[in-house]
């Protein structure tokens, strides 16, 4: 029985069409023409309890719209959603007790209050039993290292400190599901790692289901076994991360250091890119050729000093999908 299930989810918005410039703005005050924009369409997925799912896609793909529908603050235009047995927009407040939310760009802490008082307020809001609250808070204070700034008003916290506070705030009431919307945005490497370790820990220890949207694929690689890729409002891939890498990351790069610079280095049928001489980079499809064969072909013609094989980065794979769209599975090695 999945904890989250969406069927044929669709959300469209009506927005005012405005002419250009001042005339257009004034015109829009009087006569309004509307156009319909589809934010998400045909979104079908289900998530089992305890999964960590990366929900990724380019800006404007519909990630936030989906998250807002899952939290119950947006009503779908059509289709159905169920989260932990509830229809979120019908039972917004009941649903809210089951979920925790962290926005990288927006805090749920109370700006003027010391961090400790924000937590106290959340205890009352979620009616967390006092014992449970004390236990949870003690645990979060320890692993997120909050003690030093518990008495500091939130507006004086650094971004890293505020995010740690926000994570504790989202989890104080033991939610079954947490939605994390770009939780590592703007953080330094150390803070990012601390947040990732925390997410992995609560998932492992408490079995919390995690839906993570991010543009930092290192987050996804570190935390998610499964990803859902969304583009232009529709799900274009749903499955294991490795499968995407297998299907799409078919190209490796052979980096060759030549003995002497070769400005007109060429190899029939191989995509060559010139690096800082005497280095050249050869892109090849691992299904049609092996590194060994390629090296042999190079050494037949040129003298070399060193070689290295570079695996495709997740970033590159996803960038290609954003640019070219996802074909399933890639028909063949598409040579650029």
């Amino acid at each position: 029985m999945p904890i989250i299930e969406t069927r044929d989810l669709r959300k469209s918005f009506r927005s005012v069409v405005r002419g250009e410039g001042l005339g257009g703005a004034v015109g829009a005050l009087f006569s309004r023409r509307y156009e319909e924009k589809v934010a998400v369409e045909n979104v079908n997925f289900s998530v089992e309890a305890g999964e960590v799912v990366g929900y990724i896609g380019p800006n404007g793909a519909g990630k936030s719209t989906t998250i807002k529908m899952l939290t119950g603050i947006l009503v779908p235009t059509s289709g159905t959603i169920e989260v932990a047995g509830l229809v979120p927009y019908e039972k917004r407040r009941q649903n809210a007790r089951n979920i925790g939310v962290v926005f990288g760009q927006r805090s749920q802490l109370y700006w003027d209050l010391p961090l400790r008082e924000s937590f106290e307020l959340l205890r009352a809001i979620y009616r967390v039993p006092r014992d449970r609250f004390r236990e949870n808070l003690a645990h979060f204070v320890e692993i997120l290292d909050l003690e030093r700034f518990m008495a500091t008003p939130v507006r004086q916290l650094s971004l890293g400190e505020r995010m740690r506070g926000d994570f504790a705030a989202a989890l104080l009431h033991d939610p079954k599901i947490v939605y994390l919307d770009e939780p590592t945005i703007g953080l330094d490497v150390v803070a990012k790692e601390a947040i990732r370790a925390f997410i992995a820990d609560i998932n492992k220890r408490l079995g919390t289901t995690v839906i993570l949207t991010t543009h930092d694929l290192a987050d996804v690689e570190r935390l998610c076994r499964r990803i859902i890729l969304i583009d232009e409002g529709t799900v274009i891939y749903d499955g294991r991360l490795e499968r995407l890498r297998d299907e799409y990351g078919t190209h490796r790069t052979l980096v060759v250091h030549l003995k002497d610079p070769q400005p007109d280095f060429a190899l029939p049928g191989v995509d060559v890119e010139h690096g800082e001489p005497p280095m050249v980079m050869l892109r090849f499809d691992r299904r049609t050729t092996t590194a060994e064969a390629l090296i042999r072909r190079v050494t037949e013609r040129y003298a070399i000093t060193d070689v290295a094989i570079v695996e495709p980065e997740m970033e590159d794979i996803v960038r290609r999908i954003y640019l070219e769209g996802y074909q399933k599975p890639p028909a063949r090695a598409t040579e650029a």
């Binding site: 939290t71 119950g72 603050i73 407040r93 007790r97 979620y126």
Partner: peptide, 13 residues
């Protein structure tokens, strides 16, 4: 500032 969204995500009126 759009933060009303966060309040609607809480179990409160």
């Amino acid at each position: 500032d759009g933060s009303i969204v966060v309040d609607f995500m809480k179990p409160i009126s």
